[in-house]
Design a binder for these strands. Sequence first.
DNA 1: CTTAAGTTGAACAGGTCTGTACGAGTTGAA
DNA 2: TTCAACTCGTACAGACCTGTTCAACTTAAG
Lengths: 195, 195
Amino acid sequence: MAGSTKRADAQRNIDAILAAAAECLSRNPAASTSEIAKAAGVGRVTLYGHFPSRAELLDAVFVRAIATGEESLGQVDLTGDPRAALIRLIETSWQLVDGFRTLLVAAQEVLPPARVRELHADPMARVERLLERGRAEGAFRTDLPTTWLVSIMHNVMHGAANEIQAGRITSAEAAPYITATLLAAYTPPGERVLV
Amino acid sequence: MAGSTKRADAQRNIDAILAAAAECLSRNPAASTSEIAKAAGVGRVTLYGHFPSRAELLDAVFVRAIATGEESLGQVDLTGDPRAALIRLIETSWQLVDGFRTLLVAAQEVLPPARVRELHADPMARVERLLERGRAEGAFRTDLPTTWLVSIMHNVMHGAANEIQAGRITSAEAAPYITATLLAAYTPPGERVLV
DNA sequence: CTTAAGTTGAACAGGTCTGTACGAGTTGAA
DNA sequence: TTCAACTCGTACAGACCTGTTCAACTTAAG
């Protein structure tokens, strides 16, 4: 993305800072700039040389996380039976949510809500499109707003992440649990839940 | 709970501090002791005279919130058709989650996870008992662990709170959405979702 | 009325954080 | 090789937080 006019070592440091920030903030959403700079193997002053404030660093980290997420999601086949497509989409989405959810907490503490929503728009639209198609084809319920169905997916995944953290379920169990739960939750009233 | 040996004005201040803390922390989970003391109409020193540390204050606030919650939940009729009982339980639980969720965030930042879980045990057991009975009677699915079903309820409600905060749904819509979602999610595979 | 319990603000110690300034040293690029 | 770009550590200013101490004041309770 734009070789830009930076010197090679500067660009290398920027990358290191972004990577270190993603890692630190995923462990502790309140990670300080000193902590991040140290993890990046760089002086704190250097960090401020590239990012004018902690908030702008967070924003950049978040943008990058969303971008890599979008790349994974773009490879998911969303055609064919909506239910099968949903299962495939959940599989990939779950890995992303699991990996980035603490980062999201960090971003929410610093970035204006509008910004957070703006950056979430693309991945959310992807889910929304699939759900809309499924609704049109009678596979998913239409008695609740699509945006609500999207948020359910989001929150069930977050819940799974919490359960893992609490040690009540394992990472491997999560995906099938999520799938079973969402397929049932999306089933049109009066229809049978898929076995 | 133990009239204790405190003087009347001291007890009055303790109550004021707890009430102010609950209110401040519900608006901002990072509220400082100065902020809370001011809101209680009390000097900061007085606050520290009654609560040895911010963490212990948080604990006391949390304990009180759980206690009042338990009182409401105790009045819910959980007999009869499990699905109908669940709807009644959701109604009351939702109001509690909606009111206390920010407080929970504050508590989680300061209290050890074991303590948070300990205080949640009673309300969670209540849900768990109803779900177990419903499972035994064939009303709810048995292909997923009960604890997972409990966490789903928790997280769908949290999700609803987020949606309200984001302005995508209103407080009035929330309860029916939650009910419809959970009843479907809990439906045994192969059975029809209640209309 | 008396007194002990309770309250108060100001002030302090000790800590953390962000963001900036500076001068000296290092390194990429032409 | 030369020079601008870049980096470094240290140090500082400003803000905010927790928790404690103190001496003076107010008030509940017997």
